[in-house]
Amino acid sequence: MTQLLSEILTKYNYWIYITLMMIGLYAMIAKNNLVKKIVGMNIFQTAIILFYVSIGSKKGGTIPIIKHDHGAASHVVHAAEYINPLPHVLMLTAIVVSVATLGVALALAIKIYHRYQSLEEDEILAQIREK
């Protein structure tokens, strides 16, 4: 019982990230509206980014900006005092790329709306089948 409790306490963050990811996946699969699908894609993306950033966090670590004083910069830096900066770097670029891909996705949605006068997937498919 205590083992289960400690398991929950150390892992509940991961479970909530997976819940978020699944909310995004469900929206991408089951929603009918194209803008809702795009929102689902973005939720999925941010959940993955959240997971990556959480990998980098360390108990007892501070933000990854090295304490320094001008001139005498020769004191030793201990890696355990700072949280892991590598996931931050990878995810920082991923966020900006995600907004660029969001722009392309919305451009496609606008183009589809102008052609079929609808954002609903089933109505668009019905119009395509009629032709």
Binding site: S57, G61, I65, I83, L92, I95, V96, V99
Partner: peptide, 18 residues
Amino acid sequence: MGAVDVAFTEASVGAGVS
């Protein structure tokens, strides 16, 4: 979580521009 750069990016990109 201490990821200040990522938080800054998300505040300007996710909450603002997107």
